[in-house]
Design a protein around this nucleic acid. Sequence first.
DNA 1: CCCGCTCGTTTGTGATCACATTCCTGTCAT
DNA 2: ATGACAGGAATGTGATCACAAACGAGCGGG
Lengths: 190, 190
Amino acid sequence: MYGELDPGVPLTIRGIAAEFGVSMTPAREAVRRLAAEGALSLSSSGRVTTPNLSPERIEELAALRALLEPELASRALPRAHMALIERLHTINGRIAEHVAKNDIAAYIRTNLEFHRTIYLRAQAPAMLALVETVWLQLGPTMRMLYMTRTRTDLQRHHRMILAALAAGDEPGLRLALRADVTQGLKMLVG
Amino acid sequence: MYGELDPGVPLTIRGIAAEFGVSMTPAREAVRRLAAEGALSLSSSGRVTTPNLSPERIEELAALRALLEPELASRALPRAHMALIERLHTINGRIAEHVAKNDIAAYIRTNLEFHRTIYLRAQAPAMLALVETVWLQLGPTMRMLYMTRTRTDLQRHHRMILAALAAGDEPGLRLALRADVTQGLKMLVG
DNA sequence: CCCGCTCGTTTGTGATCACATTCCTGTCAT
DNA sequence: ATGACAGGAATGTGATCACAAACGAGCGGG
């Protein structure tokens, strides 16, 4: 999810088991769960790799984010108090630091934390779970996407989200999230 | 998914293993995968039951269907040829038979087949997978919902979907799907 | 120089087992 | 009659093992 692994990296159950100091059974369980969610891809012979997403698949996952996240934000809006917006500002500051240090994994992690912080307020656990499934699938690819991104406009959309939250502007909030979520896609297509 | 199990039914790994003539390992794997998707719920001690959904959760899942399924239908629309609509008519006929025979599981299964047939045309596997996750979560509850439903208006929305598909009417299609998907919810609330 | 084959190694799968925890049933005291 | 309690049965978990399939390195032939 956090882009710590590149796409196409092969993983083995025994390797994971050794890495975490457990036996094969729990490692296999985790792998199969993640594969079922699309976070890992299983070759026909059962071999496991991080997914190598086709452009069409990326477009589809971005469309899902663009569909689900504005809805979550909209549901969070009525409950967005000042303390929440404060917290989001703080997270945004951390994002800026990670960008400055060029720490991609930390940037992705904190960026998702920003979004998750909003969505937790929506009190919609099933929706949040679906969105996180999408994040999981996009993880390894996001690293590549963000590595080539110019850094200046990374935070613009987050500022728009915060402004819309503060103003209680529901259509603006949906628009800002849609823009934030789909910006990565445009880079890829271009 | 097909409403063959009531909500709250307890399941055991050994029981499932015996039922399918396998050992505990694959049975456990399947249970954990389904639990991860929300299709089964795990008690704190690891015990497994079919989920007992709260009204809020049902509302949320219905909202997800209402969000995702019109999108899928809209993506399928440009590729909806006559042969597809023919096929959907046939499926609709089978639905009528199951309703007449009061076979709830078969009705649910065929109803989902109707929807899935449309969505397969959308060429959006990730979206379809998410929708099926939602179906999976709603499965045991759908049985209860449909048991109390009046039978007359069950097919009305499907006819509206078919008409919109044939006419290439995109807004009408989205509306018809939204209505079809959320009709069950209204019963529950009332 | 390239392609195909072979054999040893790696890997996933399913089965079985020991163990700790939980659940349930039957009993007994109040 | 009701509640607590104790003991046995049932359950999930993680580990280990045997086996078949797949992979890959190395070799030989064209």
